[in-house]
Design a protein around this nucleic acid. Structure first.
Lengths: 356, 356
DNA sequence: GAGTCTTCGGAGAACGATTTCCCGTCGTGG
DNA sequence: CCACGACGGGAAATCGTTCTCCGAAGACTC
């Protein structure tokens, strides 16, 4: 009736559970004839090892928790895909938790995953500050890798794109195309990617345009905010002449860029003639917007592969706990599309950031 | 050092593990004074029940497997979000598996989830035919709910949108707007949503346009295919005059519609003046395309809620195995946008399909 | 030929919770 | 005064593996 167990197989082939376990797990050599008998019996009964029992005994579930701020952010599906495939290849399963961008939910999800005895956690923290406590507590209990965003220094291993380099690619590209009056639409809050991109913009753009730091609008990573922010920037101080308007709208991510684009078009601003627009992440939407958005592509596969590698080191490595923490910064790539390029017919070109 | 167990708590408060378990699980009344002592000890030690041990003993992991064809299809993230939230509310965790649109991978993922003793499975099958065997085998072992797509009759409980009703909404809307020459770009293969939408198009469109069934292009659910298919349709037979071109391009989903839109614009076809374009699903991309795509919105929250409810009935319900299988069809909603509406300034309107 | 290895297999103790018995101790009614 | 039920609590079996001991038997060395 019910699922056959090791006992059933042992009974069927007339030997002990220990022997069956050894044959099936291959942990110790077993006589040829016995091996054959065990294999046959297991096959005939359709025996499948119970992973829960195995996990209890071996103190390892072969399961990794993946904690995301909001899976509906179009940047994450690809990441999830790459991660699950990488982890499945190591015979690990993925417990998924979505946090609805709320640090409190995030803390409770992490707690729940730990209670389920995950072997490790992959966390994209909601917020650098408000996630820090829960993440640090979790990192003290299991190997933990921060992904895409970080969360205070020295908390855990971390893999992310080099936001500063990415922003530099964008700004250099815009400057090379003759843009001189920059503005930035980003996300408020302390989310590390938001903060890093903002800081990189301030630092780099000021070199090209002394007033760049004064034209910064901060909201959240959404299409709606992109629209609203353009409204604010273009409402501007009274008496502003067209010549004072920004000619380059640098956005904190692609969602914002898409919103900005919509609003600019509605205001009758020619893209890219009167204003160039750039995004960040290279989500699918960026390439179907009209005009297609120039953006910074994150190396998602590498991100996932490195995260899996870091986990593996901690889980199977020589010195799991004592090994020094690693922080990896991956080089992004500029994807030039029609929203900044004067010639919409030229094929989109990409440019890799220098490897650091 | 290591995580405290029931034994540790029992030792700390001077009573037996049985008592501690009873207090914490609340399975049997325990004296007031003892209860207090146990609670304090548990609190002080920071005791957290080990879910793996609990699962082994109680034969229930509180875990549900979610099997998706391809999480990078923008329709799924919202579904995943709703599902995880609904299941977390029932104190269940979600093991996620992505199949890369491959029935073989799907079968192996399902097998792996079953070995991990999931209490139930939520499956969006890759293909109605080639997924049937693995899904049926799984359904025989645990409660299983098919989501969004089905997979042969009588295999398992199933919740999906009413594709036929959705297609009817689209076609009626187009006909009411005076469109007369329909064409359809869909997905080949036996995936149930692909097949149902295709069939519904054939049946319904023919009523408005006798030639509708002759203008069908089948590929896959992607932007690229949308572009390519438009190329084919507009390449058409030699000598075709503009008056013979379709004036309505009905697409199997939004991705296809976006691709179609791009190609039509490139060909210089005015949207919606010369040709209307419609999609299906209402993914975020549909509303940011230019022009925004008229589409059929799937009731994703309801889909998730109903799936969770079906699972719950099987898991906690009166007669888990014997209860008759249920097939739910949810009513979709038409979202009219600029790709079919002559007046781009009028706010997008929505129209609910009649509840059946 | 006696002692020492090696090899193969079994018995049984974990792992950490739940749950079924069972045993005292009261209180109470006959 | 005794029997009986209710109640609080403990001992131990159980879930299905893994893994550590142990023992027996054959192979080898000196």
């Amino acid at each position: 009736m019910s699922e056959p167990t090791l006992r059933d197989v042992a009974r069927a082939c007339g030997c002990s559970v220990a022997t069956v376990s050894r044959v099936l797990a291959g942990t110790r050599p077993v006589g040829a004839e016995t091996t054959r008998r065990v294999r046959r019996a297991a096959e005939e009964l359709g025996y499948r090892p119970n992973q829960v029992a195995r996990a209890l005994r071996s103190r390892s579930t072969g399961t990794v928790g993946l904690v995301l701020p909001q899976i509906t952010n179009p940047f994450y599906p690809t990441l999830v895909r790459e991660l699950t495939h990488a982890l499945h290849a190591d015979a690990r399963a993925v417990l998924l938790a979505d946090c609805d961008d709320d640090p409190a939910i995030e803390a409770s999800r992490i707690e729940s995953l730990l209670a389920r005895q995950v072997d490790a956690l992959l966390v994209v923290p909601v917020d650098a500050e408000r996630s820090a406590e829960a993440v640090a507590a979790a990192a003290a209990r299991v190997p933990l890798v921060l992904l895409d965003r970080s969360c205070g220094p020295g908390v855990a291993d971390s893999v992310a794109v080099d936001n500063t380099a990415g922003m530099a690619l964008v700004l250099d590209h815009l400057a090379a195309a003759g843009r001189r009056r920059f503005c930035f639409i980003g996300a408020a809050g302390t989310t590390s990617s938001a903060a890093e991109r903002r800081a990189a913009y301030e630092a780099t753009a000021t070199a090209h345009d002394p007033l760049a730091a004064e034209r910064i609008e901060l909201g959240d990573f959404s299409v709606e905010w992109g629209r609203e922010a353009v409204g604010r920037l273009w409402a501007g101080p009274e008496g502003t002449t067209a010549g004072d308007r920004p000619d380059a709208v640098v956005c904190g991510n692609d969602l914002i860029a898409v919103g900005a684009l919509q609003q600019l078009r509605q205001l009758g601003i020619g893209i890219p003639r009167q204003a160039a627009v750039t995004g960040f992440d290279d989500i699918p939407m960026a390439s179907v917007a009209e005009p297609a958005v120039t953006t910074v592509r994150q190396p998602v596969s590498e991100l996932a592969a490195e995260a899996a590698r870091l986990l593996d080191r901690r889980l199977t490595g020589a010195d799991p706990a004592t090994a020094p923490q690693r922080t990896l910064r991956l080089a992004p790539e500029l994807v030039v599309r029609a929203s900044t390029s004067p010639d919409p017919n030229s094929p989109p070109s990409t440019q890799k950031a220098a490897v650091q």
